[in-house]
Design a protein around this nucleic acid. Structure first.
Lengths: 335, 335
DNA sequence: TTACGTATTGTAATCGATTACATTTTGAAG
DNA sequence: CTTCAAAATGTAATCGATTACAATACGTAA
C-alpha cells in the first residue's frame, strides 16, 4: 500500500505538504504542487480514508434506514437521498429492516460508533423517546414517516389532508358507502390516512360503518384478504379507499376473483402512486407522493444538521397530488 | 465522547485490558472482566469504529453497485446480500448508478480508499480489463451480470439456457413466428438471452426473421414502443419473448392499445419474475430467477474472498425456473 | 522455600492522514 | 545590504483502538 509518506519522499517534501496539496486547503507553491501531483500520479496514490476519518472524526457517510427496499416507493426516496448525498461527496449506508421494527435499534449503534455522520429514517416505528434522545447527540432526519407532535426534523407529505382529498374525490363522485382498508395502525402513516378518511366522511355527514374500516399492513395480500372480507358483507360499499397502492391492487384482484370489476362495481383509490400504479388495470386513481423530492429534501436537511448550519425550518411538508385514473368513477347505485 | 481510556481509568485497568474484554480475544480474569463491563455500562461506552478500522485495516463494510435500485429484481438481490452481510456483521454501502455506466467508475475509488473491504457488482457494463485489474487487489464478485470468458468470481443464472427454455416453451405451444424484444445488446444479459432465443429457434428449424428481433433497453417504455413497431408489420408474430418482465408488460400494453389480447392474439413470455409479474393481467409466463439466493451466494463468496479462504469454486450458476401463467397459450393460427 | 510455567495485566508502538505550531524561505521596503 | 512580514514548508502531536512485547502475579512441583 502506498502511503502519504511514500509520496512525500518521492516528491522530496514533507507529508504535511502532500496533505495540503490533496486537500487544497492552504497555499502551496505551484512548482511544489506539480512535483507532488506527479508523485501521486506515478505511485497511483489514493489517500487512506480510514486515517482521515479518524483524524477528522467524520466519515462522509450517512445511514438510511428503510422498512422495505423492495417497495419502489422507498427506493425512489432513496434515489433522491443518494442524488444529494453524491453531490456532496457523501455515501449511503443501507439499513433494510425488512419491516421488522426491532431491527431499527440495531442500526442505531452505527451512529454511536461513529460509522456514519448522520441518519435518515424512512420508518419511524420504534421508540420515539429513544430516538429523540439519540437526536440530541447525532443528526437525524425522519422522512415519509414521523412522530406526532415531535420536534424531530421531518420531511413528508400531509397524510391527513391527502387522505381527506382522496376520500373527497370519491364523495364528489356521489359515493356514500365508502370503505377504508387502512395501513397498520401502529404506524403513523396508517393512522393519519385513516384520520383523513374519517374527517372527510364526517365533514360530508356520511356514516362511517365500523365494519367498512379494516386494518391491513400495506401488503398486497392484506388488501386482497380484507377486500374479500368486505365483499362478504350483505351491504357492499360502492367505493374503497386503500391505504396504499399495493393494497388497492390486492383489493381489485379480490373483486375480480368474485366477478366484480373496478370501477364499474366498486371504485377504488390507492395511495403513493408507485411505478406500477399506472400499468395496473384498471390504472389506479391515487395520491402521488413526491418521492424523489422527499429524499432530496431530507438529505439537504441532514447536511445542514451535520454542518451545524442554522436551520430556518425543521419540518417540511411537501405537496402531493391526486392523480385520477381509471379505478374510480361516478356512483351508479342509489344507496 | 467516551474513550477507551476513560473506561480503563474508571475500571482501574489498562486500555489493553479493556480492549481485550471488548474483543473477547484473550483471557481476562472474571472479576476484571466484570469491573470493565460495569465501567462500560456506566459510561455507556461505544468503541470508536474509525480507530479500530484504521488499526485493523478493515471496515466491515462492503460496497454494492446496482444499476437501478428502483427495479425490484435488483432490490431483491440486495436483500439476499444484506441478509448474509448482517449475519457476519458487515454493512452495505449502496452505489446506485441509475443505469449510467460511467458512474460505476466513480465507485471504484471507494475500494481503493479502503472505505469498503470488498465489492459486489450487480452490473458489469464498464471496462472488463479495468475490473480484472482491480480484482487483483481487492475482493470483487459479480452477480447477475458477468463478463464472457472472464475468470472473475460470478454468481448468476445461465441466461442462454434460460432464454432457450423460454423460447422452447413457446415452440412447444406450436408457435413458429416468434419475435424477440431483447435487452440492450451492450449488456451481456441482453446478448445472452438473444443467443438463447436464436439457439432454440435454430434447433427447431424455425426461421428467425430479422425484423422480428428488436433491441430494447429493459424498460417498460421500450417494450411498449417496440411492440407497437412489431404490430405494424404485415405479417404478425404469434408469440413474443421479451428480455425481461417490464418489457413484456409494455408489449402487452401496446397490444391492448391496438385492441389485441395476450395470449389470445399473441403469446408473451417475460424474464425475471418480478413482484408484479403475477399481479399483471394476464399474469406473466416468465423465467423465475432466484434473486434472494443470488444475493446470498454472492455475499458468501465475497466473504470467502475477504477472508482469503481457499475457494473450491469461483463461478456459480444457480438454477432458474420457467413459471407458466396466463400470458402464453397454444398457437391457434396456421402460420 | 525456590523455581518455573502459565495466566493476567501493563506499556508503548502502531495504523496513516491531518494540522497546530515551529521554522525556513522569499521578496519588498527601507 | 538589512529588516521584517508574508509565504511556504517542515516537525511532531494527534485522532482512539489494537496488539506485540514486556512485566508481573500466581500456582504447582520439587
Amino acid at each position: 500500500m502506498v502511503r502519504i509518506a511514500d509520496v512525500a519522499k518521492l516528491a522530496n517534501v514533507s507529508t504535511a505538504t502532500v496533505s495540503r496539496v490533496i486537500s487544497n486547503s492552504e497555499t502551496v507553491k505551484i512548482e511544489t504542487r506539480e512535483k507532488v501531483l506527479q508523485a501521486i500520479e506515478k505511485l497511483k496514490y489514493q489517500p487512506n480514508v480510514l486515517a482521515r476519518q479518524l483524524r477528522r472524526m467524520e466519515t462522509k457517510t450517512i445511514l438510511v434506514i428503510v422498512p422495505d427496499i423492495t417497495n419502489t416507493f422507498f427506493s425512489n426516496v432513496l434515489r433522491g437521498i443518494e442524488a444529494i448525498a453524491g453531490e456532496n461527496s457523501y455515501q449511503v449506508l443501507l439499513g433494510d429492516t425488512g419491516n421488522i421494527i426491532d431491527r431499527e435499534y440495531g442500526y442505531f449503534d452505527i451512529l454511536r460508533q461513529r460509522k456514519a455522520d448522520g441518519m435518515i429514517l424512512l420508518t419511524a416505528r420504534s421508540n420515539q423517546q429513544l430516538l429523540e434522545e439519540i437526536a440530541k447527540d447525532y443528526p437525524i432526519v425522519l422522512a415519509c414517516e414521523y412522530f406526532e407532535g415531535s420536534k424531530l426534523p421531518t420531511v413528508s407529505i400531509d397524510n391527513i389532508s391527502s387522505a381527506r382529498k382522496a376520500t373527497e374525490h370519491l364523495i364528489s363522485l356521489h359515493h356514500k358507502r365508502i370503505a377504508h382498508i387502512s395501513g397498520p395502525l401502529n404506524v403513523v402513516v396508517g393512522r393519519d390516512r385513516l384520520k383523513g378518511f374519517q374527517q372527510a366522511m364526517m365533514q360530508h355527514n356520511l356514516l362511517i360503518e365500523p365494519c367498512l374500516v379494516q386494518e391491513g399492513d400495506f401488503s398486497y395480500e392484506s388488501g386482497y384478504n380484507l377486500m374479500t372480507k368486505l365483499l362478504a358483507l350483505e351491504n357492499l360499499p360502492t367505493a374503497v379507499f386503500a391505504g396504499n397502492d399495493e393494497m388497492a391492487m390486492g383489493a381489485i384482484k379480490a373483486m375480480k376473483s368474485k366477478g366484480l370489476k373496478a370501477p364499474d362495481d366498486i371504485s377504488v383509490v390507492g395511495f403513493d402512486d408507485i411505478k406500477f400504479a399506472s400499468v395496473f388495470e384498471p390504472a389506479l386513481t391515487t395520491i402521488k407522493q413526491p418521492t424523489f423530492e422527499i429524499g432530496k429534501c431530507a438529505m439537504e436537511l441532514l447536511l445542514q444538521l451535520i454542518n451545524n448550519d442554522s436551520l430556518d425550518k425543521q419540518q417540511f411538508i411537501l405537496s402531493d397530488k391526486l392523480v385520477v385514473r381509471e379505478s374510480s368513477t361516478i356512483n351508479k347505485f342509489t344507496n
